[in-house]
Design a protein around this nucleic acid. Structure first.
Ligand SMILES: [Zn+2]
Ligand SMILES: [Zn+2]
Ligand SMILES: [Zn+2]
Ligand SMILES: [Zn+2]
Lengths: 166, 166
DNA sequence: AAGTGTTACGTTATAATATAACATAAATAT
DNA sequence: ATATTTATGTTATATTATAACGTAACACTT
């Protein structure tokens, strides 16, 4: 079970998260002969600014500040599309939002644990869940191609606080 | 494993599906002292007209025909909201679309198998998947409250046709 | 039956998310 | 240098969803 769940839900040296993500991204770009442009890098940075998914228009706002110029929606969506293609980020369908992928190299069917209270989202690659989904698909004669798996609830921190206040 | 997958992906007496859904809905309304109005019933009918999820604006179009009058978005969304509350329909987040629930009584965390080719969606309540998701959440100290689980691929029929044509 | 509160619907406007279409600029290849 | 590809700028618009406020229908009390 590959996950960034500990990290996401605890205070940590977050500068490292960002730096590591950028390094991975640059490596992947070299490998795939893709170009990491300023806009694309800025979007990736913003998506790693926190462990909370951001919407396209939140990104747009923050890009204006970061790049010090107005960016129109198509540009934002193009950068998002590019990063999605490379597997550097994911889309959280139930939130219409995007988040950096902590392990873009490993070919994974991912799962997210999203906190209803603080909005943080941890990614989990859980082999046995994926196997079970595959088995269930097989049994139904369904040819599984992709999946959206988003769990909502309370992260450890928020659950702790909630319990305390009772 | 509770599922309507066989039914969804095969030709069947679909009138029965619709009739059964309406009966269940009316029963539930009596039980909950909720009102099944013409608009609400029409939306439910439309969502059972096929086993494919429909978007709110598709519903709007079809409502115009079915009720023989123009219906504005808020009315459509109100009916959707009502049916969602009663658990009579589900929202498919990755499609922004809605579909009738085949077993609204059983308290279930559901899963959908959605065909990328024909758009049909089967619902599956799979206890061991849910248990595993619960276990994974527990391990991560995550308090699971709800889930979105949508599998995309090819339904048996479409997979069969695809194989044949190769 | 009349009055009262509640629930649902009508209507208009608008918010939020996403893409189409076409022009320009920058990078890469020949 | 020129041609080709790739990325971005720009304008307009499509798609999904909700806010706000008024009216009508229903249901309960008296
Ligand atoms: Zn971090
Ligand atoms: Zn939290
Ligand atoms: Zn049917
Ligand atoms: Zn199909």
């Amino acid at each position: 079970m590959l996950t960034n769940s500990r990290l996401v839900h605890q205070t940590h040296d977050h500068g490292r998260c960002i730096k590591a993500a950028l390094t991975r991204a640059l490596d992947l770009c070299v490998e795939r002969k893709a170009r990491m442009t300023p806009t694309r890098e800025a979007v990736l940075r913003l998506l790693w600014q926190s462990h909370q998914p951001l919407g396209a228009y939140q990104l747009q706002d923050q890009l204006a500040t970061l790049l010090d110029k107005k960016i129109a929606p198509p540009t934002v969506y193009r950068a998002i599309e590019f990063l999605l293609q490379l597997g550097l980020i994911h889309r959280i369908a139930s939130l219409n939002a995007y988040i950096g992928c902590p392990f873009p190299n490993s070919d994974h069917s991912n799962l997210f644990m999203i906190c209803n209270n603080c909005g943080s989202a941890a990614e989990v690659a859980h082999a046995s869940i994926n196997e079970l989904l595959q088995t269930a698909s097989d049994k139904a004669n369904f040819t599984l191609q992709s999946q959206t798996l988003e769990l909502f609830g309370l992260c450890p921190q928020c659950a702790y606080i909630e319990n305390k206040s009772k």
